[in-house]
Design a protein around this nucleic acid. Sequence first.
DNA 1: TTGAAAGCGCTACCAA
DNA 2: TTGGTAGCGCTTTCAA
Lengths: 340, 340
Amino acid sequence: MSQLPKQPAEVSVPTSADVARLAGVSRATVSYVLNNNATVRISEPTRRRVREAALQLGYVPHAAARSLRAGHSRMVLLPSGHIPAGPLHQYFFEELQSGLRRLDYTVVQYGSVGLTADEAATAWAELRPVAVVVPPGIALTPHGTGILTRSGAKAVITLGPGPVAGAHGLVMDQRQVGASAVEHLLARGRRHIGVVMPQEPCRAPFSEPRLVGARGVAEPAGARVCPLPLRYEEESAHRLAARWPELGLDAVFAYNDEYAMLLMRALQDAGVAVPADTAVIGADDSLIGRLLRPRLSTVRMELAMAQPLAETIDRMVQHPGGPPVHQDLLRTSAVHRESS
Amino acid sequence: MSQLPKQPAEVSVPTSADVARLAGVSRATVSYVLNNNATVRISEPTRRRVREAALQLGYVPHAAARSLRAGHSRMVLLPSGHIPAGPLHQYFFEELQSGLRRLDYTVVQYGSVGLTADEAATAWAELRPVAVVVPPGIALTPHGTGILTRSGAKAVITLGPGPVAGAHGLVMDQRQVGASAVEHLLARGRRHIGVVMPQEPCRAPFSEPRLVGARGVAEPAGARVCPLPLRYEEESAHRLAARWPELGLDAVFAYNDEYAMLLMRALQDAGVAVPADTAVIGADDSLIGRLLRPRLSTVRMELAMAQPLAETIDRMVQHPGGPPVHQDLLRTSAVHRESS
DNA sequence: TTGAAAGCGCTACCAA
DNA sequence: TTGGTAGCGCTTTCAA
């Protein structure tokens, strides 16, 4: 059977065996040198030959082979969903990533939109991460937690809004945001409080608990809470503003500063005076709120971490036996400006 | 030597061998069944036994072992940096991810801040991705491209702003944004044009080429371009606005709508009339621009993809030999509202 | 100081 | 229709 030569253009990726061959040593020696293994002494000339051979071939170790052999990886998986809400999250995740990298973990984000909770958990588990940090907006079930744990994850951490059985909960309880907003409005003498509910589905994991928090404060005080569906579009805002007189509200918590800007513009266009007729409060303490006229009252959010989360995760990975940690990272406070 | 039993709590992760044992078949059969291998016929009762065993043990295949054996992965690596600029990018990456997943690729984002271009390329190469898509703001050098290609990546794609030797370039040429903005301002009779340069470092990959584009249009027309450093803070904007009279500008391209909002507020507070004294144009065509008064003129951006990028990548992966693709995905157009 | 070899989990070839 | 088995790239123990 005459066989044509296999594709000659097919470049073969150099392995540690190629490095060993070029340096004239064994694969073991290559591994010792490139990993700076301290338990074994390799002569300086050999070290240099190995390093030069690796450089010359453009050798890059194969992470999968390494972790297969080691029996574990140092990968921390960060499922990612839709737009993470606000600069707070952006900052939080950058801190987390750089902290973990300093501790020599490999941080990988895995886009998980369009998967059910258990499909996603299985997909994550296939990568055999040593830890999984699930942000708000990504579903994690107790069953999914089980899948991950059984596949070797030493720490499964949910960032909220609520706890999940089997997982550590470093939650960001969004109910606080609604509670702080409504407390502020009550303190300013308002009693008929609208709560904007964004209709974009990716907002639901935040907006629902915020509404719950708002109710939890308003009802004991005898105030009324009215959910107000709103899409992030001018037309939706104008329709809501047109209904304003019949709603009989004297205040509104607008989900965040951007929705607040949208609604406030529509209210002003409809002749509703802010804050005289209706007080408005947003959330996020973003710059745009300070640029509005009247300046926007808002709920400021901060993350309290006794110690950087990266180190907490590292500890969980090293001592997997411990009891589930449950802690609320979020601290909220209302900031009074001119719109309330 | 009396040896205490190894940690009994140490749960062992089930492998295909465990599934085989429980189902009373060989590992080969397990592989055939779970991968729905069509080249081999397995009886229905056997299939069921295997599946039940897998379910009962909570078996999840080990992706690293699989791709090690296969000699290649289906991982597409998406390096991620700081905040991707604007909703356009958000949308773009979500489309890309879901498109790739439909084609059965695993999309993984790898946070690459704080690494040099070549360190990053090496870190990516260790994961042996089949393709790498480098967004704007992440550095990719020809050398880095070589590292990736030699470690088996079938397609290395940069999204701009400029081409990189060895990589495919599906660029988003930011110069167009500046050019469209300035063309618009010139058409409205302005000749002394400020260009806001955000001082946040993560903006530089966008702002620099935008300035270049602005210059490229202004200079042939005999107009003056003046770069205006600005931090995204009220105080920085007020200082810039205070210098406004001495700058002698009759128009400003404000980088994007958010910086435009910041600057426009500061100008108005300083008594500069918009657009009478100074025209302002932003970019991104975001909702906040339409909510401002005067309504903000802006540069709208769209991504032209002859066919979804995911399919282009799939083709590159399947036919790696092809010549480098070079294409500008960005389409820009000025939108005139009231601020210019 | 260095080398030989086993084995991590998986798939695909060949034999039964 | 099913099983045995080699081997992907790497690290690490043991032996020389």
